[in-house]
Computed example of a mutant assay.
Amino acid sequence: MSGAAGWWRNWGRDPGRLWNSGGRSSLNSEDRTLRNQTPTVVPVRGGFRMYYASTLSHDLFAGGIRSAFSKNGVTWQEEEGYRLSSSETNRVLCPSTVALPDGRLRMFYEVQRKGQGSFIAAAISRDGLEWAPERMHCLEADKAALGSPCIVPLQRGYRLYYHHYEAGPPENGLRNIRSAFSLGGLEFISEPGIRVVQEAADEAYAVYAPEVIHAGNAWRMYYAAWPSEGSGLIKTAVSMDGLAWEKQGVVLAPDDGDGVKVVSEPSLLALPDGRMLMHYEACDVSGNWSIRSVASRS
C-alpha cells in the first residue's frame, strides 16, 4: 500500500470466511421516514468516522451522504449536516474514501441520475467534514450504470473496484464487479475483464458493493449478492493479484430471528484490540433500513 493513503486496507491477518451470525444495530435512525445505507468506515484521530447515505424513504433524492463518529468503532454519534447533498435529479451514495499524500481526503461516490443510470464522481476535503466536488465524471460508460466504488491504493497508483450494470434483465449475467486503474488517483481507465461474475443462483439479481482489503499475502473481497429484488446477502472472494478472484461463498445472510431480509454493502474495520468488525446495511421485513455490525470469528 502506498504511504498514508489507505493503511486501513492493509491488514496483517485475513478475517476470512467465518463471521458471527446476526448483528447489532450501529446506526438506526429513530425517524422511520429515513433510511441509512451504504456505510464505509475509516480510522481518524481519536477514533473512527463512518460515511453513509441517508435519505427519505419516500424520496431517495432527498438527503445525501452524512457521517458519524465513534471512539471505539461500536457506538456511533451522528455528526451534524451533510457531507455531500443530493439534488432533485442526482442522488449521491456509496462513499469510499482515501487519504492522499498531501494529507487531504478524497471521496469516490456513486451518482444516480433520475431515470438516466449512474456514474462515479469524486470530492475532496481537508478535514473529512467539509467536502467539495472535485470531478463529476471519474468513471462512466455509455451503455452501463456504474457505482458502489471501492478505492484501493497500490504500491504504484490506485485501483477502483465498482459495479457495472449493462442494460437488460438482471438474470442475464449483466450485473458484475469490474475495476479501473489510475496512476494519479483521479483519472481512471477500465481494466480488461470482469473481477466478479454474476453467475450463481444467489447472485441472480446482482453482485455489487465490493469491499477490498490486503490481508497477509493476498487480497480479500467482501461483496453484496442479491438472489432477487428485496433479498440480499454478503459473500467473499480471494485473489493473489487483485484481478483474478476465486469465490469462497456466503459469509453473512439475513437472520430470520431479527426480522432482517437484506444484508448488503459491507465495510470492514480492524479495532485496536484485535477484533474485526463488518458494518453493513440491513433492511427488515417492515422495510426499515439501518446500519448494523457483526464481528469475525477468526
Score class of each variant (00 low, 15 high):
15 P>E: 01
113 R>T: 12
185 G>D: 02
222 Y>H: 14
230 G>P: 10
54 S>V: 09
194 I>L: 02
66 R>S: 09
46 G>H: 14
15 P>Y: 00
106 R>F: 01
87 S>D: 03
149 P>T: 05
65 I>S: 04
290 S>T: 06
276 M>Q: 04
158 Y>W: 07
60 L>Q: 14
184 G>F: 00
131 W>Q: 07
216 G>Y: 00
270 A>Q: 05
57 S>R: 14
73 G>S: 05
109 Y>M: 03
171 E>Y: 12
286 S>K: 13
28 N>C: 06
215 A>E: 14
166 E>L: 10
127 D>W: 02
292 R>I: 14
232 G>D: 12
11 W>V: 06
80 E>I: 04
107 M>Q: 03
169 P>H: 00
121 A>L: 01
136 M>T: 13
273 D>I: 13
14 D>M: 08
57 S>H: 15
233 L>C: 10
199 E>Y: 03
144 A>C: 11
110 E>S: 12
31 D>K: 08
284 D>Q: 02
2 S>F: 04
18 L>P: 02
2 S>L: 08
88 E>Q: 10
73 G>D: 11
187 E>V: 03
209 A>F: 09
194 I>D: 14
195 R>N: 03
137 H>D: 14
230 G>F: 07
58 H>L: 07
28 N>T: 15
151 I>C: 14
98 V>W: 04
197 V>K: 13
23 G>H: 06
68 A>M: 02
274 G>C: 08
2 S>P: 13
285 V>G: 09
192 P>W: 02
88 E>S: 06
161 Y>I: 05
113 R>P: 05
74 V>Y: 01
169 P>D: 04
122 A>P: 00
126 R>E: 13
46 G>F: 09
224 A>S: 14
21 S>N: 10
120 I>M: 00
34 L>E: 06
222 Y>T: 05
64 G>V: 00
126 R>Q: 12
154 L>K: 12
12 G>D: 15
278 M>D: 09
132 A>Y: 00
102 D>W: 01
268 L>S: 10
3 G>Q: 01
173 G>I: 06
202 D>I: 08
55 T>I: 14
248 Q>T: 15
135 R>A: 07
179 S>K: 10
12 G>M: 13
186 L>C: 09
79 E>C: 12
